[in-house]
Structures are given as C-alpha cells and as structure tokens.
Design a protein around this nucleic acid. Structure first.
Lengths: 193, 193
DNA sequence: GAAAAACAATGACATATGTCAATAAAAAAA
DNA sequence: TTTTTTTATTGACATATGTCATTGTTTTTC
C-alpha cells in the first residue's frame, strides 16, 4: 500500500532502518490525500500547512510573474516531497501555487506533527538531514547550470538527470521549468535532430 | 575575540542559548585559521576537509569552466560559512576553489569533530537545521531570480539584499556571481544613472 | 463524432547579452 | 615615483533567446 513507498524512501535516506512500531507511528501521523488533476494542493496566499510525499502522480510548483504568466519553479513526481518550504516552516502565506498535473496520491503531515514524529524516530531526523544536504547540492548545481549553460545544454542535462519529467509534463511546462520560452524549446528540439 | 561572533551567530540561529560549558567545547573544537589575501582555503581536486566560519575578511567560491575562466558561485564575508558542502559531507574531491579575497580569519572544524560536537550541543543542531532551511529558501529565490529576471533586475536585487558585496568585491567578480559578463554589468550601471 | 481547448511548430522581427579589441583609470608593486 | 598589474569603460558586431502572430496537431469535453 501507499505507506510502503514512504518506508522505502526513509530506508534509502538513512542508515538506521525503522521498526514496526515506528512504522505505526508514521501511519498515524501521515494521512492519505487524493488530488484530481488540476486540483490545488497549495494556493498562493495560503499557508502551506502540509508537506506531502507523493506516492502516485505528478505536481508542479509555480508562481505568477508581473505579466501574469506561470513560472514553474519545481516539478514533482512519485517519491518527491511537495511543499513550499518557506511557508511550511515559518507558517507564513505562500507566494506559490502547487497543483496536480495528473490524478495524484500523497501522504500529508503538518509541521507540528512532523516535529513530534521527529522526536520519536531518529531515522526521520537523519532522512531530513540527508535530504537537505542533497537538496542544497542539487540547488547549487541547478543554479550553476542555469547561469552558465545555453538553453540547449540545460535541456540535455534535464534529459539525462530527469528523463521522466520530459515524458510526463507538457513541453511548455518543461520550458518554463528550464527558464526558456516554449518557442525556444520547440526550436531547440528541432535543431538537435 | 573571534569566538564571540560564532557564539552570537549560534544564539541568533537557535532558540536555546548555549552554556559556558558549551562555549568551551566549541572553543576546543573549532580552531582559528588565518588566510592571506589570494590564499586558497580549498583547491579543486582536494577534499573540503573543513567548514569555516568567517570572523573577518571575504572569500569566494568558484570553478573553472571549459574555456578556463572562473565562474563564481558564492561570495562569503563575515558570519558566512565557507565550505564546499558536497565535498565536506561526502568527503569526495571538490570541483571548486575557495580562496580569500582579503586577509581573512576563520574558525574551522572537520566533519567528524562537528558531528561530535552536535551530539553534545543541541543548539548547534538547531542552528544547522535553521541554516539549512534558510539556505534552501534563499537558493530557491536566487534560482527563480536568475531564471526570470533580466541582468539589471538581478543587480538591483543584489544591491538590496547584499549591498556589502558590491562594496567589497571587484565588479568583474560581482558580474560573474550574477551570471553576466563584466562588460554587461558595466553598461548596465551606466544605463541606471 | 463534433466542437472546444490545450499543446506544439514555425516565421518575421526585436532585444538582451556575449565577444573581441582597444583604451582608460585605479591599485599594487617595485 | 615609475612601472606593472588589476580593474573598469566603451565601441562594433555576433548570437541566443524573446515576442507576437499564425497555423497545425493532439487531447479533452460535451
């Protein structure tokens, strides 16, 4: 069932594995949430009350720029955590929207419940440390890549690092995520052949 | 003396303050390091053995791209931590250089010693959590800004968020940090007037 | 299955930024 | 001070990418 993928994820991200008791604690603390395609998980202006572990589906995080068009900052699929971190940890209104790109299943938890759980489950604390670490490294790389590489190189890089994204998200969303226009991405793909 | 700024930093970043005993533990674990201007703190290919808290001075982190020119990814001044996180935590060779832009004083510690210290000082653990958190948020913002804003807007943003940088680092390094050429930055400043 | 909506491709043109070379100005070294 | 090195400015031109409008294609909805 759903929780299995979360248990596996925790095992992957921490040395110490979790006990049956701990599994039960987790089952009690995280609750399932189902989102239909296009449904919001978080709306701009609301507090990101939950962090959600995706067990099935795909989501995106974006904001609206001055001109009013969507700028995608993150894409999420299975085994990703969806939340606006800033809003979630500081309980302040978010500037982002997060919504489902496909029918999606999540396991969600509040900040307070997560904090409680971390007191009881060391593996969870370690998981978060490792996640933060990898996250920081990945962010550094994505930034460097954005600054220094041409649109084409960044697209190639995404093809290598996250081929699933290209399958599952429409091309204009991929373009936005890469920080280029859909027209540029379209031309760049043509040129690659 | 030097350690005061570290103590203040920890106090700022965690709710629980630290005891006199904990201060002594910290003094024993972190050791002072002085770097002359232009001296390396970390060289590309070496493992980033230490993380360093800057008490005085300024540093930069950069790599050499294919063409062989320096690409600055981070600038550090007082109260910043200088390390290549990926290398420091995984003890693998770094792809970055970190060197001093001015005569610089740091308090340095190894990963192992830091881990030991974290077992003894809860405030330190919290500090790191908060740092990671803010770091992730800042990285997200910097990425979004890099992707969506024009060079000029990014410069304005830096003027607002880190005016000290503009004072202390030469303009061509600021340009590199912003991901633009020195010529573009020069022109952009002229146009602003 | 027809109509509507979302998605993708393409052309013409505009603009931001990069590149290269020259020169000037400022700072550091001798 | 003089010389050298580093830093900054400027011009001419090249290139990547954006913008806007049009059309074609695919997917969704009724």
């Amino acid at each position: 069932m759903m929780y299995e993928s979360l248990f596996n994820y925790i095992a992957d991200y921490s040395r110490s594995s979790i006990t049956k008791d701990e599994e039960d604690l987790i089952k009690n603390a995280f609750r399932p949430k189902i989102l239909r395609k296009n449904q919001y998980f978080l709306q701009d202006g609301d507090v990101s009350k939950y962090t959600g572990f995706i067990t099935k589906g795909a989501m995106r995080q974006y904001y609206l720029n001055k001109k009013g068009d969507e700028v995608i900052v993150n894409l999420f699929i299975e085994n990703y955590w969806a939340t606006d971190r800033e809003s979630f940890f500081n309980l302040k209104p978010s500037a982002y929207n997060i919504d489902a790109c496909e029918d999606t299943e999540l396991l969600i938890i509040t900040r307070a419940d997560l904090a409680e759980l971390m007191k009881k489950i060391p593996a969870l604390v370690e998981m978060i440390r490792v996640m933060d670490d990898r996250h920081a490294i990945a962010a550094q790389k994505r930034l460097a890549s954005t600054i220094n590489n041409k649109a084409e190189d960044r697209y190639e890089e995404l093809l290598r690092s996250n081929p699933q994204f290209i399958q599952r998200f429409p091309q204009h969303q991929i373009a936005s995520y890469l920080g280029i226009t859909k027209e540029t991405l379209s031309r760049l793909k043509k040129a690659r052949k």
